[in-house]
Nucleic acid binder design. Structure first.
Length: 899
DNA sequence: TATCCGACATGGA
DNA sequence: TCCATGTCGGATA
């Protein structure tokens, strides 16, 4: 059942109250309580209490209808129950004005206005087998609010087809403000909802007029004498929130009710402005509705950005300043001058969290000041005017401003709670810094938030990620606008533009920046393209290594992220920190753009087409680009082989990474140009070829050109060429392009000439066996792990980055023979032990359910490692870091030699 | 022509 | 719905 259904049903019961029937109707809302149980309770057959007005349903509820002092009645009932040997989950009393209920398991008690029962439906969810704590974790008030809000939004859109989006959005923002204000003490309690309820007609026809009058009045500082009484109770709001002219909105009975329900059923005081904002933003943009909230940054992740960027430092300074009035005041002065900008602020959650954290620190400081000098006056330090943002969607801009007001008010309440005598008024609203609506990649950030060399300014956020092949024309133009001068910029992720602009804003100043980003900009070919130019002026001061994106949205975005903090190179002696999983912190001197400790951050491996190491050519396997019509499963292949005589001439096994690792194969049609005459009239073949022609015709470029030769692979690597070579003695080596990072070694191997290596794997045709041994070695694994690209965190093997750049020392014939023998041994053990490579290599590095690698195989690999290690260095390596350092040094020598 | 990538894709528990 | 682990074709050089 949807959350809102519980509320709606209970609301119906409360509004059409039948006191005698109430408890039965209420129980029936909770579907796990059987109808028959309720019927029996009504008849009294299973009512364990014989007192009139009392209902005791075994293990579930002890209910009493009372009159007079409910609290006294409740206390009496509790003590009465405690004397019996019974254990009802809930105890509830009500006089239908007030209601008190206790959950005897959690000992939680609610004492509420009877009319607020619908809002508290989740308190009783244990009846349905759902514990309240679990429910709240999965269905926060924010989600509930967003769900109701989406309904209202859709209804208003249907009733107002011609209205401008901006006008509608503005109305909704103001509505949200009013609902929030009446629940949190900015306005008089429930005044907005009650006004609408009592002052407008049920069909909604005059609601627009009243709303317009109200909004205008909220923006009027000097209250006219003739203000009608119903308006006079509303205060002056300012903050420009109600300044713009209200756009007329058509209301219906339905939309009016939805507004009233939003007021009555949602506890706006429980709503987090940071999360709500992201939900609202998603509601308002149709295309994003499907991934509601997918991309909002969770509070823990925001903390990972702002803590190391500036908050840790402020807290540290606070600790040092404790007991010293001057130092404390200096810290406040410093905080007052700080400025913050999120150049992709969305609905502003980074700004909100930052604002709240600073206000809390401010309170702590005043508490300390109070201890030193108890006549300390509270002077507001942190102001909304210190917060800036850029956002492309105008609704989100409004949500950001609104959310900042809400955050401000929440902190004012917290201040009052903590120190009753320190007061800060929410109204009139304070002015927020520039939250600019526009394209962050086209705007001059320094014009929005101008700063001097020594100003303390921080930029942060979670800008959009988009790989090179997913960018649309506009985004590509934006990339060119920002990164046009950067070599190879077209291969960079969209977020690279933010990192580049961050550099331009912060370089040679004290300003710093940190973003949450896809980890791919710190892997593979993007490392050189992006970081070589940025590191000319900047340095990485902290980094969170790869972790999986997660927030509370129903469906999470599928991406692995890192967090990178950056300052100007001019800032010396910064202690840099690398945070890895489990929040293990390592303090280091230099952080490389691969986000690991390094001695030289310019040791970056560049994608290279030519081999730098004289190894035989590696190429990608063959790619059919056939829409799947050249391929068939093992099973289908065997059927075909039986059905058509001689077809085995043109059927080959087809093996990619998945097939190779998991020990199976598919079949592919593989027809040489000369043989096509023989086969084009075969029914099975011709049907498939026709489909391929159709498929390729819809494409463009090379693929389309091959539409009339459908049997041909679009790219064959060097396979055909190899097949035509006579007197071959080498092996066809297969290397999976993508494979699990949970294995110690990437399984590689050899296949015969009757097997097509698919483009999901790399291939070295007609190669010596020692080469396979070299590639399977620890040395090569370390290289792959550190300089190769990744698919999230999977290993991604590529020729340009990994194979061609791999530094190889002089190998004597004797050593080659030794390697050959050891890799031969490994291949034998694989055969002897049996099972798939996935089973043999296991997943020993998995965090949750590690599966061991076959011990015999592991031993054989270690022997191979020793021999290969020895080719690089005469003594043992301490660890993989030492291997990597040696390889990187060899690499840089190799590159320098080439000039 | 040959990649290197994917706010992913997909199959199995 | 989570968890483990690798397809396939596009845009680019």
């Amino acid at each position: 059942m949807a959350i809102t259904e519980y509320e709606d049903k209970i609301k119906d019961i409360v509004e059409n109250l039948d006191k005698e029937e109430f408890i039965f109707e209420f129980l029936s809302v909770y579907s796990k309580i059987a109808k028959s149980t309720i019927t029996k309770l009504r008849k009294g057959t299973n009512n364990l209490s014989k007192v009139p007005g009392e209902y005791h349903l075994k293990n579930k509820l002890y209910f009493k209808q009372v009159s007079g002092d409910t609290l006294q009645a409740f206390t009496d009932l509790v003590s009465k129950i405690s004397q019996q040997n019974v254990n009802p989950r809930y105890i509830m009393v009500t006089d239908f004005k007030n209601l008190i209920a206790r959950d005897t398991k959690t000992q939680e008690t609610i004492d509420i206005d009877f009319k607020k029962l619908p809002r508290n439906f989740e308190f009783f969810l244990a009846w349905n087998g759902i514990e309240k704590a679990d429910f709240e974790r999965e269905n926060p008030a924010d989600l509930k609010a967003a769900e109701r809000f989406a309904k209202l939004y859709d209804t208003l859109l249907k009733d107002n087809e011609r209205i401008s989006r901006h006008g509608l959005n503005l109305f909704l923002i103001r509505l949200l403000f009013c609902l929030f204000a009446e629940d949190t003490g900015v306005f008089e309690k429930d005044i907005f909802t009650n006004t609408i309820k009592s002052m407008t007609k049920e069909d909604g026809s005059d609601l627009n007029c009243r709303i317009q009058e109200l909004f205008e009045f909220l923006d009027t500082k000097i209250r006219p004498e003739d203000t009608p009484a119903w308006l006079r109770k509303f205060p002056y709001v300012n903050g420009q929130l109600f300044t713009e002219q209200h756009t007329n909105v058509v209301f219906s009975k339905k939309s009016r009710n939805l507004i009233i329900e939003a007021g009555e059923l949602i506890g706006w005081d429980k709503v987090n402005p940071d999360i709500l904002g992201s939900m609202l933003q998603a509601v308002a943009s149709e295309d994003k509705r499907s991934h509601l909230g997918m991309h909002y940054t969770s509070v823990p992740n925001i903390m990972k950005v702002i803590n190391p960027l500036f908050l840790d430092d402020l807290h540290e300074e606070f600790e040092k300043a404790k007991g010293n009035e001057t130092k404390l005041n200096n810290l406040l002065e410093r905080m007052r001058k700080m400025k913050f900008m999120d150049p992709a602020c969305g609905s502003g959650n980074f700004l909100i969290i930052t604002y709240k954290e600073l206000r809390r620190l401010e309170m702590d400081i005043f508490e300390e000041l109070g201890k030193i000098n108890n006549s300390t006056m509270y002077v507001p330090t942190i102001d909304l005017g210190q917060f800036y943002g850029i956002e492309i969607e105008d609704f989100a801009v409004d949500v950001t401003r609104l959310s900042l007001y809400i955050a401000d008010h929440q902190m004012n309440l917290e201040l009052k709670r903590r120190y009753g005598d320190y007061l800060r008024e929410t109204l009139p609203l304070h002015k927020v810094g520039d939250i600019r609506c526009g394209n962050a990649l086209r705007l001059n950030w320094n014009e929005i938030l101008p700063h001097e060399k020594d100003d303390e300014v921080y930029l942060f956020g979670n800008p959009p990620y988009l790989g090179a092949s997913g960018q649309n024309q506009d985004q590509k133009k934006d990339m060119e606008f920002v990164l046009g001068k950067v070599k190879g910029y077209k291969k960079l992720d969209f977020i690279a533009a933010w990192f580049y602009l961050g550099m331009e804003y912060c370089k040679e100043t004290k300003a710093r920046y940190a973003f949450v980003t896809t980890n791919s900009i710190c892997q593979g070919e993007q490392v050189n393209l992006l970081w070589t130019p940025i590191l000319k002026f900047m340095q990485i001061i902290f980094a969170y290594q790869s972790f999986k994106w997660a927030n509370n949205a129903k469906r999470n975005a599928g991406v692995t992220v890192v967090i990178i903090g950056i300052s100007s190179r001019n800032e010396k002696n910064i202690e840099k920190r690398i945070y890895s999983i489990n929040n293990y912190i390592k303090k280091v001197k230099i952080i490389s753009p691969y986000l690991i400790e390094t001695e030289n951050e310019s040791l970056i491996v560049e994608n290279t087409k030519k081999t730098l190491n004289k190894l035989p050519l590696m190429s990608k396997g063959s790619s059919p680009t056939d829409g799947g019509y050249l391929l068939m499963s093992d099973e289908e292949g065997k059927t075909v082989l039986e059905k058509y005589d001689g077809i085995n001439d043109i059927l080959k096994k087809y093996v990619g990474s998945k097939e190779f690792i998991n020990g199976y194969y598919r079949y592919t049609i593989w027809i040489a140009d000369d043989d096509i005459k023989t086969w084009k009239n075969n029914k099975f073949i011709s049907e498939r070829l026709k489909k391929i022609t159709e498929y390729r015709d819809k494409k463009k470029g090379t693929v389309k050109k091959l539409a009339d030769k459908p049997w041909k692979y679009v790219s064959q690597g060097r396979f055909s060429e190899t097949l035509s070579k006579k007197n071959r003695t080498g092996y066809n080596i297969i290397v999976p392009r993508v494979s699990s990072e949970n294995r110690i070694y990437v399984p590689m191997g050899t296949v015969d000439d009757n097997t097509v290596i698919s483009d999901s794997a790399m291939a070295i045709y007609d190669a010596p066996l020692w080469l396979l041994g070299l590639l399977e070695s620890r040395m090569h694994m370390v290289w792959l792990e550190n300089v190769g690209g990744k698919l999230e965190t999977r290993y991604r093997y590529s020729a340009g980055l990994v194979y061609n750049t791999f530094p190889v020392p002089e190998l004597s014939t004797r050593r080659k023979n030794e390697i050959e023998e050891l890799i031969g041994n490994i291949l034998d053990i694989r055969e002897e032990e049996g099972g798939t490579l996935a089973e043999l290599y296991g997943s020993p590095l998995a965090a949750k359910n590690p599966k061991p690698m076959n011990p015999r195989l592991l031993e054989a690999h270690k022997e191979l490692d020793k021999v290969v290690d020895r080719a690089y260095k005469s003594t043992d390596f301490k660890d993989d870091n030492e291997r990597l350092a040696l390889l990187l040094n060899m690499y840089s020598e190799m590159v320098n030699k080439k000039g």
